[in-house]
Amino acid sequence: MGDWWQRNIMEPGKLPLLLALGAFVLTFVITRVITRLIRAGKGPFGNVKAGGVHIHHVVPGIVLTVVGGFGAVAGGRHGFGSALAAVVFGVGAGLVLDEFALILHLDDVYWTEAGRQSVEVVAVTAALVGLLLAGFTPFGVDGMSEDELQGRANVIATVAGNFFFSLLALAKGKARLAIFGVIVPLVALIGAVRLARPDSLWARRFYGRRPRARARARLRAYHHDRRWSGPRRAFQDWIGGRPDPDRR
């Protein structure tokens, strides 16, 4: 265990990333618990106001993110300062992305359908950082054998190929597959070879004169959304709370 920790966490300089991820996830969980208690009118918590203005937690989040980011740049990759900056950055990022939908819409949509975007962004961010930690960095490890060096070179080539397939997946309107595909090769390949979504850039460019391809794309998108929208909404509700009903 000690050798694995040294070679995969300490030597590649991943400890700050691990600390930032832990602070990010913990901050998001605590924030959601507190906001749900405020919404239910339970506990000692309440909205923060100054001069009649509701101070959203994205405000201290931005401050902490800036402080942590500049602290990390100034402190380098090692030492207590780097670890502290990583924790501060993770806390700030958790507060900011918990209100990602508010920033995107420039409106207080925290407990609306649009507010689900915050939960989705946080989940994707945590998953991506977790994948980076679970894998290994092809740079920065000393004392490798010839076989290990060859393996690292193969990884670099694979990452370049994955990036190409991820761009194809993104052009086909499969943003989640494109993001995860940068790290997981099979995901990028799946997104690149499957039919594009009907509203994607790829569909507008290559399906314009192919009515059968357009029809297949619409049918596949309909079945996919019908199958997965329910479980995805249930997952988001479990993490972030059920949105208020639309009264319009």
Rank of each mutant, 00 (worst) to 15 (best):
193 V>N: 03
107 D>L: 04
135 G>S: 08
192 A>Y: 01
136 F>P: 00
64 L>T: 00
95 L>K: 04
93 A>C: 05
79 G>R: 05
140 G>H: 10
90 G>V: 02
110 Y>P: 03
115 G>Q: 01
178 A>P: 06
188 A>C: 07
180 F>S: 07
44 P>C: 05
146 E>Y: 04
158 T>K: 09
139 F>G: 03
209 R>Q: 15
58 V>E: 00
216 R>Y: 14
234 A>E: 10
123 A>V: 15
165 F>H: 06
8 N>T: 03
137 T>H: 09
57 H>P: 01
224 H>E: 15
121 V>T: 05
180 F>T: 04
218 R>Q: 13
55 I>W: 03
243 P>A: 14
70 F>Q: 05
145 S>C: 02
58 V>N: 01
89 F>T: 00
128 L>C: 05
83 A>Q: 10
192 A>Q: 02
84 L>Q: 02
140 G>I: 09
160 A>N: 03
218 R>Y: 06
7 R>A: 09
135 G>Y: 02
228 W>F: 15
215 A>M: 14
157 A>P: 00
239 I>L: 13
236 Q>M: 15
25 V>K: 02
18 L>C: 05
66 V>P: 00
30 I>L: 15
116 R>I: 04
216 R>S: 13
83 A>S: 11
110 Y>S: 09
177 L>R: 06
103 I>R: 01
4 W>M: 09
152 R>H: 07
141 V>Q: 14
86 A>T: 00
220 R>P: 00
16 P>V: 04
74 A>Q: 08
140 G>P: 04
41 G>N: 09
122 V>M: 14
154 N>S: 12
201 L>T: 11
15 L>Q: 07
211 P>I: 05
20 A>H: 03
184 V>C: 09
72 A>F: 08
182 V>R: 06
19 L>I: 14
81 G>W: 07
144 M>A: 07
194 R>H: 06
135 G>D: 09
13 G>I: 10
76 G>V: 09
171 A>Q: 11
104 L>K: 10
205 R>T: 15
70 F>N: 06
48 V>A: 13
48 V>N: 07
72 A>L: 12
176 R>M: 12
27 T>G: 02
110 Y>T: 15
152 R>P: 01
67 V>W: 04
63 V>I: 13
172 K>H: 01
118 S>F: 06
220 R>S: 15
65 T>I: 08
50 A>M: 10
24 F>K: 08
13 G>K: 08
27 T>E: 03
97 L>P: 01
172 K>R: 15
131 L>F: 13
170 L>H: 00
33 V>W: 14
116 R>P: 02
89 F>C: 07
190 I>R: 08
238 W>R: 13
161 G>Q: 11
202 W>L: 03
46 G>W: 04
93 A>L: 14
60 P>K: 01
232 R>F: 10
35 T>P: 00
80 F>R: 13
102 L>W: 06
167 L>A: 14
217 A>C: 05
234 A>D: 12
31 T>C: 08
141 V>E: 11
199 D>K: 12
104 L>M: 15
134 A>P: 02
220 R>G: 01
66 V>R: 00
231 P>K: 13
155 V>N: 10
12 P>Y: 01
151 G>D: 04
25 V>L: 10
145 S>K: 08
66 V>F: 05
70 F>R: 05
51 G>Q: 02
113 E>I: 11
87 V>K: 04
176 R>H: 11
89 F>H: 03
162 N>Y: 02
59 V>R: 01
84 L>A: 13
135 G>K: 12
146 E>K: 10
36 R>A: 12
2 G>M: 12
117 Q>L: 15
96 V>Y: 01
